[in-house]
Structures are given as C-alpha cells and as structure tokens.
C-alpha cells in the first residue's frame, strides 16, 4: 500500500481533470471560445514534457558520475516519455491551432522550436540504437543528452520570447496567459491536470524501468 498511494492519486487526478476539462464552466473569450478547454490537454503536455526531459538529463548526469546502469535506464525512459508527451503536445496544439489560427501549422516560433526539440530527442534515440556496447551506449548517449539539453534551453526559453511575431501568448509584447485569460475557473483544473499527466508519465517510466532492470538481470 505504501508504494501505491501516488498511483491512486494519479488515477483520481486524471479522472478529475479530464471530466473537469470537458464539463466545468469556462470563461468566454473572444476567438478562443470553447477551445480554451484544450488548455488542460495541450499545455499540460508541454509542462509534462519539460519536467520529464529535465529529469532525464538529471539521471544522465548522475549516470556520468556513478556509472550505474540503472540510472541510464531511467534517463532513456524519461526521454522516451518526454518524446511521447512532445508528440501529443504537437498534435493537440495542431488541433487547437486549426480552430483558433485557421491552420494546423502556421510556422509559429514556438511550434518550430517544439519540432526542433523533438528532432533533438529523436536523434538521441537514434544514437542509442546505433551503439552496440551497453556501457558505451549509456556513456555516449548521456553526454549527448546533456549537450542537447544545453542547446535546448535557449531554443525553448529565450528565442521565442525575443520574437514579436508569435501567436502564442507570452511572447514579445504579448503578456503571458496568467495575466489575462487564465482565471480561477481554469486554474482549478489546469494545475491538477499538470500533476496528473506528469505522474502518469512517471508511472509509465517506472514500469519500463522495472522491465529493463529485470531483463538486465535475466541476461546476466
């Protein structure tokens, strides 16, 4: 029971946030209208992705310091889950953009950065697959993970804020969504939704890591 409480919490929070996202009252905003409900799916995916990828880099750093293969399993599985969230984030974003901006892909700086971020992590996975020796694979790909993450920070957090042309809120002279359209009716669903989806990611990671650890033991 001790280890299960957070899984129960995940299920409860997920149920609450999905029901809340579809059924709760939302503020009426020009252009956005009911599509604001996508906030609870699209934006939470990005929060989840950033959190999972950051954790992945932390595990890569810990691996480099200790050479413990289990830490590398965590690093790669967190990266895998982050990529999955990233793909879902792009897909939900494209649906939203189709309704609010008129086309699924409008070359928005944040859309482009998201696509590049996915390319970086797909390259990381390709690199892993091309290395045969497991110790070497862990080491080399950890180095690339940290290196790529360092390149990702300016891409995700600095460059989009320097352009004035983004359609997303929170860029250039455009105030962040906190100030004008994220009111308390959205917050009661939005924050639990971030926690719920991230926990779901962690759950998937823990299952995959358990499988990998068992497999490693079996192979030995």
């Amino acid at each position: 029971m001790k280890k299960k409480w957070w899984k129960i919490l995940t299920v409860l929070l997920l149920t609450y946030s999905i029901l809340g996202a579809f059924l709760f009252d939302v503020p009426r905003l020009a252009i956005l209208n009911e599509t604001i409900r996508n906030l609870h799916f699209h934006v939470t995916m990005w929060f989840g992705m950033i959190i999972l990828l950051t954790v992945s880099v932390i595990y890569s750093l810990r691996y480099l310091r200790s050479n413990n293969m289990r830490l590398d399993h965590y690093a790669v599985e967190f990266a895998n889950a982050g990529v999955l969230f990233g793909v879902l984030g792009i897909a939900t974003g494209a649906v939203w953009a189709n309704y609010s901006w008129g086309e699924p892909w409008s070359g928005d700086p944040k859309q482009n950065s998201a696509a590049i971020a996915l390319l970086i992590y797909l390259a990381y996975l390709v690199l892993r697959n091309s290395l045969e020796d497991s110790q070497q694979r862990a080491k080399i790909s950890s180095v690339y993970n940290v290196f790529a993450f360092a390149a990702l920070i300016p891409l995700l957090f600095i460059l989009p804020r320097m352009t004035d042309s983004s359609l997303h809120p929170g860029n250039g002279g455009n105030p962040g969504f906190n100030s004008y359209d994220l009111d308390s009716r959205l917050r009661v669903v939005f924050y639990p939704a971030i926690i719920a989806w991230t926990l779901l990611g962690v759950w998937m990671v823990s299952l995959r890591v358990r499988y990998k650890n068992l497999k490693m033991k079996w192979d030995d």
Binding site: L119, V126, Y144, A151
Partner: peptide, 16 residues
C-alpha cells in the same frame, strides 16, 4: 550520425 546529431543542436544557433 554527425549530420543527424548536429543539425537539431545547431538549429537554434543558426536561427540567431
């Protein structure tokens, strides 16, 4: 692999 690994890493730099 050099091209695959380096292009996404260099893209932010190249944009600036």
């Amino acid at each position: 692999l050099v091209a695959v690994l380096s292009f996404p890493v260099m893209l932010p730099l190249l944009l600036v």
